[in-house]
């Protein structure tokens, strides 16, 4: 566990795959899992591998261990997606890690919690998606596939959080600071967001809105762009400040 399969296993897998019509290893999505909670990690691995479309190339307890594991990976074996637990044991979310990893790979943030600021912070730090740990396994898998394909995995939970943020923007009288740099969404984008928060797939959202799934994907990409438009340097500094306040964590 935690290391790429050795040569013989790989050959066996290749032979097995070549016999049936299942995806070959090169088609498999390579995923690294970072979570300090062993049971949760096992659960995630199980969900990912069960479907047969995902290969877990590394499963580690910390970003430091991930760096070690990735250094040992052969060229071409780098993960397509890093599934990262946002909180680990620390009080603060590991936003700098999200920013750092997002520079070189795609990060799907996962957390048991859904604090609005932290989730938004993760997305703005470059995360390509956010799923809660109690997400439906199918949804989780779909999120991994979306992120692997370069998309933005907008889970119903994340959409719900984003829309709560947006309704605060629209009703400033309710108090609470709007996240700096967040641009307002168009009516259609917000409509799409609301439907995704209800649990609809992109295709279903498209059908309900009378547009194609591709258009919905575009809305979602625009929502992501508007979220990530903020000053990244500022965000990273804020994240570092937070870490600095609790040294040793």
């Amino acid at each position: 566990m935690g290391l790429p399969p050795n040569e013989s296993t790989r050959k066996n897998v290749d032979e097995a795959r070549s016999l049936d019509t299942g995806p070959r290893e090169s088609d498999m999505i390579r995923v690294a899992v970072v979570d300090d909670h062993p049971i949760a990690r096992r659960g995630i691995e199980q969900v990912l591998t069960e479907a047969g479309r995902v290969q877990v190339v590394a499963s580690v307890g910390s970003p430091e261990r991930l760096a070690e594991a990735l250094a040992a990976v052969e060229p071409g074996g780098e993960p397509d997606v890093v599934v990262l637990d946002l909180y680990r044991d620390a009080e603060a979310p590991c936003l700098p890690v999200v920013a750092e990893l997002s520079a070189t790979t795609r990060v799907l943030v996962m957390s048991a919690s859904g604090r609005r600021e932290d989730v938004l912070g993760a997305v703005r730090a470059g995360a390509a998606g956010y799923v809660t740990k109690h997400a439906d396994p199918e949804m989780f898998l779909a999120a991994v596939e979306t992120v692997a394909a370069g998309g933005f995995a907008l889970s119903p939970q994340l959409a719900d959080i984003l829309q709560a943020e947006l309704s605060r923007v629209h009703r400033p009288a309710t108090g609470g600071a709007r996240v700096a740099g967040t641009q307002e969404l168009s009516v259609r984008e917000e409509e799409a967001l609301g439907l995704i928060a209800r649990g609809f797939t992109h295709a279903q959202v498209g059908k309900r809105m009378g547009v194609t799934k591709a258009t919905v994907d575009t809305y979602v990409e625009r929502i992501r762009a508007k979220l990530q438009v903020g000053n990244k340097a500022e965000l990273t500094r804020a994240a570092l400040d937070r870490l600095g306040r609790s040294p040793g964590s």
Partner: peptide, 15 residues
Amino acid sequence: LLVDFNSSQLRESDE
């Protein structure tokens, strides 16, 4: 039956 319950909007306001 596992129910994902999305209620961010209402949790953040009391109005």
